[in-house]
Write a protein that binds this DNA or RNA. Structure first.
Length: 495
RNA sequence: GUCUCCUUCGUCUAGUGGUUAGGACACCGGGUUUUCAUCCCGGCAACAGGGGUUCGACUCCCCUAGGAGAUGCCA
């Protein structure tokens, strides 16, 4: 049996990291098995549907480098792959079940349904859900409702006796008494669109899907789906319910935990390599040591056997760590291209950048490459190169274990040392500063700190000599002079 | 409430009856270094609890507890 799996998102919001994990696992499973990966758009909820969501879906898959063998845009033997274009199909299938006595029209208003639920809650009833009010309506009663012009929904008749089970690759057998299954769920809405339950069963069967890899939040509708397959006289596919992705508090991952949409991650400067690598390790592992995987490797090495059952907590810090690693592996010119938009957005570069500006970024790259965990951090790291940090706490200039007077002496000496510094290499500069430090009887770090603060306005910065070279002697001198000025004032007030 | 699933360091995990319970992130210490970062070295830290089964249980079974998910004309 050839492997055919699908990712079937509904375009009702931005692509979520949990959804992407499901997409990835389906994709890798298909590739590793030499099977087909199918994309299907489940746009049956016309209330929540949005074009923007659909665009985001395509953009996300494109960004991650996931391609599908069948689906929208590429077509395939079992299309169309957009459920709204299969409208008639679901209606036919729903009515087939009605004719077979396995489903029935229901005329209950949503108000009544709400009231039923409210009462159940109030009475702490052991039965929850639809009360099967319309299950056994007589033809006369139906005709009456029809005459009132009520558009019915179609509900599936869930057996009241017996039990239904399915085999899960991960969980083994999952059993459920039929009376515990959602009582007669809607399969066709009053607008004629199918609900998820009907649509996914019909489509998975018609599209010859062999395995269903989906999140564990779907476990409880598994038996219902099996019942639907039975009612149609079809064999269900193989199920595999993937562990869920949680937030730090153990609840389903959501916005309040931080970013959850792939778009957010992209905007913050996470690389697709890092997202793919990290997310693949949520609920799956290869062995006891290896943890770096590129997409191409996962396409070979992924297997259902290494899946974990327990839910995984999404760890933003570990993602950062992965991302930093992948950023450092980028070629300089690629990284340059990647950080460009962030610098433009910060207003540091024109759009598009001038050749001079491009030259400038290329000089910046080596200074910041190993200091990044997200690309969006770039502007803050290099702000001092584009904006003169005039305002900073003068106290920062004074290194530990010394005083303003001594610091002033150091900075003045440094000022004398930097004439034509650009002609010297970092090594030569360092030697000179080292000698000076020795003369002044301070450590190199102490000598450099006032210079660093004068130039960057901060005690933390990229390597100084490189930064100074970018700023040029004139600018550097100007900032040193201001530093000296600050120190003079500081020394005054300290007297 | 009911049903279903889950349970190894704070987090991601390795482990399939006999291990000093391994790795990674985070954290803490140390080293390299012009600060930071990178890099290197070291440390802290786990089998939810209770019963069985067994010569022997993290591994198998049962119970309890805890967590999560579902319970929609959303997927």
């Amino acid at each position: 049996m050839s492997v055919r799996v699908r990712y079937a998102p509904s375009p009702t919001g931005l692509q979520h990291i949990g959804g992407v994990r499901t997409a990835l696992f389906n994709y890798f499973f298909a590739r590793a098995a030499g099977g087909s990966f199918i994309l299907r758009i489940e746009d049956t909820d016309r209330e929540r549907y949005s074009d923007e969501s659909l665009d985001d879906l395509y953009r996300t898959l494109d960004w991650l480098g996931l391609s599908w063998d069948e689906g929208p845009q590429v077509g395939g033997e079992y299309g169309p792959y957009v459920q709204s274009q299969r409208f008639e199909l679901y209606r036919e299938h729903a009515h087939r079940l009605v004719e077979a006595g396995r489903a029935y029209p229901c005329y209950c208003s949503s108000e009544r349904l709400e009231e039923v639920r409210r009462k159940q809650k109030e009475e702490k009833s052991s039965i929850f859900g639809y009360d099967r009010h319309c299950r056994d309506l007589t033809p006369e009663q139906r005709a009456e409702y029809e005459d009132q012009g009520i558009k019915p929904v179609i509900r599936f008749k869930v057996p009241m006796e017996g039990e239904t089970s399915f085999e899960d690759v991960l969980l083994d057998k999952v059993k459920r008494k039929n009376r515990d299954i959602s009582p007669d769920p809607v399969i066709l809405k009053s607008d004629g669109f199918p609900t998820y339950h009907l649509a996914n069963v019909v489509d998975d069967h018609l599209m010859k899907i062999s395995h269903i890899l989906r999140a564990q939040e779907w476990i409880s509708s598994g038996p219902l789906h099996v019942l639907l397959y039975e009612a149609f006289g079809w064999d269900p596919p193989v199920y595999c319910h993937l562990p869920m992705v949680m937030g730090k508090d153990g609840q389903k991952l959501s916005k309040r935990h931080g970013s959850t949409s792939v778009r957010d991650f992209r905007l913050q400067g996470y690389l697709p390599e890092a997202i793919i690598n990290y997310v693949s390790l949520l609920g799956w592992s290869y062995d006891d040591s290896r943890e770096f995987f590129r997409k191409e490797e996962l396409e070979k090495v992924f297997s259902l056997e290494k899946l974990n059952k327990a839910p995984a907590v999404f760890d933003y810090k570990k993602l950062d760590w992965f991302n930093g690693n992948y950023i450092r592996e980028l070629d300089d010119d690629v990284l340059q291209k990647q950080i460009r938009p962030y610098l433009i957005e910060a207003g540091f570069l024109s759009d598009p950048p001038t050749p001079e500006q491009e030259e400038l970024i290329s000089e910046i790259i080596p200074l910041i490459k190993e200091r990044l965990s997200r690309l969006a951090e770039v502007p803050e790291l290099v702000r001092f190169l584009f904006q003169d940090p005039a305002e900073y706490d003068a106290q920062l200039l004074v290194p530990k274990k010394t005083d303003p007077a001594k610091t002033m002496e150091m900075l003045r000496a440094v000022r004398g040392l930097i004439q034509n510094f650009s002609e010297n290499s970092d090594e030569e500069l360092e030697d000179e500063f080292r000698n000076l430090a020795e003369q002044l009887e301070v450590k190199l770090g102490q000598l450099l700190m006032p210079l660093r603060v004068s130039i960057t306005g901060s005690k933390v910065s990229p390597p100084l000599f490189g930064a100074m070279r970018i700023l040029g002697e004139q600018e550097v001198t100007k900032r040193i002079d201001r530093g000296i000025g600050y120190l003079e004032r500081l020394a005054e007030t300290n007297k």
